[in-house]
Design a protein around this nucleic acid. Sequence first.
DNA 1: GATTGACTCGTACGGTGTACCATACGATGA
DNA 2: TCATCGTATGGTACACCGTACGAGTCAATC
Lengths: 230, 230
Amino acid sequence: MAAKRTGARSKRSQPTSEWLQPMQARGEPPLSRERIVATAVELLDAQGVDGLTMRRLADRLSSGVMSLYWHVDNKEDVFDLALDSVLEYRGPPQMGEAQDWRGEVVYMLEDWRASMLRHPWSASLLPRRALGPNMLSRLELLSNTLSGAGVADADLNVAIWSLWNYVMGATITRASFDLSDDDRVAAQQRLTRLSERYPTIERSRLLLDNDWDGAFRKGLGFLLDGLAPG
Amino acid sequence: MAAKRTGARSKRSQPTSEWLQPMQARGEPPLSRERIVATAVELLDAQGVDGLTMRRLADRLSSGVMSLYWHVDNKEDVFDLALDSVLEYRGPPQMGEAQDWRGEVVYMLEDWRASMLRHPWSASLLPRRALGPNMLSRLELLSNTLSGAGVADADLNVAIWSLWNYVMGATITRASFDLSDDDRVAAQQRLTRLSERYPTIERSRLLLDNDWDGAFRKGLGFLLDGLAPG
DNA sequence: GATTGACTCGTACGGTGTACCATACGATGA
DNA sequence: TCATCGTATGGTACACCGTACGAGTCAATC
């Protein structure tokens, strides 16, 4: 939820017209917001946050840089769209079977975390970005499920934000500690050199042996116990 | 914990020599890593993450841009140092009285969150930064206290990371939703326009009436109940 | 008096986001 | 048929960015 973004999207108003573009001629399909976002995600996956520049993006799309700005406001806009596009939620499998609410919540939150970890840049991007429709859908679903599970309206905000905070923190942490093995060993060695200052961290091998997924699940369980008993 | 940073700090090797610098003459004290970091924090407070540029930093210090690089590796380095400098922990007040471990943990974690919220840029910076000494001290203290409270070594990592994740998520969320009143109202209005798609969010006034501090405390309580019973 | 090491800084380079403006061309109305 | 319009593309240019390079200044030391 960055500052402004009150209106004023890109210049194009129609939802991407259907007729063939001029000037394409080559095999390339015409530019579109969707194609731009998809390519941005590719680029981010391949090169990370700093690797995404408008020029590189245009190159990959075999278009001129300024053409992008017809479909997109800003580089900020590209980030917002790329992030949200990664957060689409398809719901739990086997829709037929009746899930208990707790299973549903856990599934959704783990899926959220997994979706972001599949694109590690998304975690570090989250803090300063706007809430997109996919993000809002997830929030709505979460609220709705908890509400249906009997969480009183007065407690709903606390529950939602606590869960949101936990998932977000866990994902960001996990993503930023997802070093190569070499890096991780180097980090721990550096720590070992300071072990008289940080003996407990050193002893618990905090950076080495962590079962991230298990830890995430356990902490989530404790939170749910407290937030929505029953 | 960004990628490399194995060694190779700035060119200067001594811990900031004592003798007077040449060239100062003016009232300005000489350049030093500490002064650079302090000024960077000022600049970040005033202008946000994007407002910090090496040129502006040098201007504020009445020095040439390239002089900074004698004391500092990188712009990245400046970010790391500024972030860590904000995380110093002074411990709870009235050291004399015996605190229960839980009070100590809660105090430290709330202080952590408060320190970062005093400098909102720090939250959005966290994801990609290295662990500085102040951060590590806090981690060490947390580990140590929990360990002293009887948390088994096997459960220590889960406990620490769950708490870390929660605090970090809560802080980042809070910081990025810390809009001006106008912005907040605008956000909720935009949401209201979509209220048929997000009825529960709308009904719970998720973006408006939230008691962030209370929610943080409650969620933290539930986590602690689960993680370190007794 | 020459040398050394600590520190400062002007210049320059390659890169960035994007404002501005000149196009190209299908659709539309005359 | 032709002028006009809306959609879309993209070249050029500008201000700004991080920082490599190397020259310069001065206190201390030999």
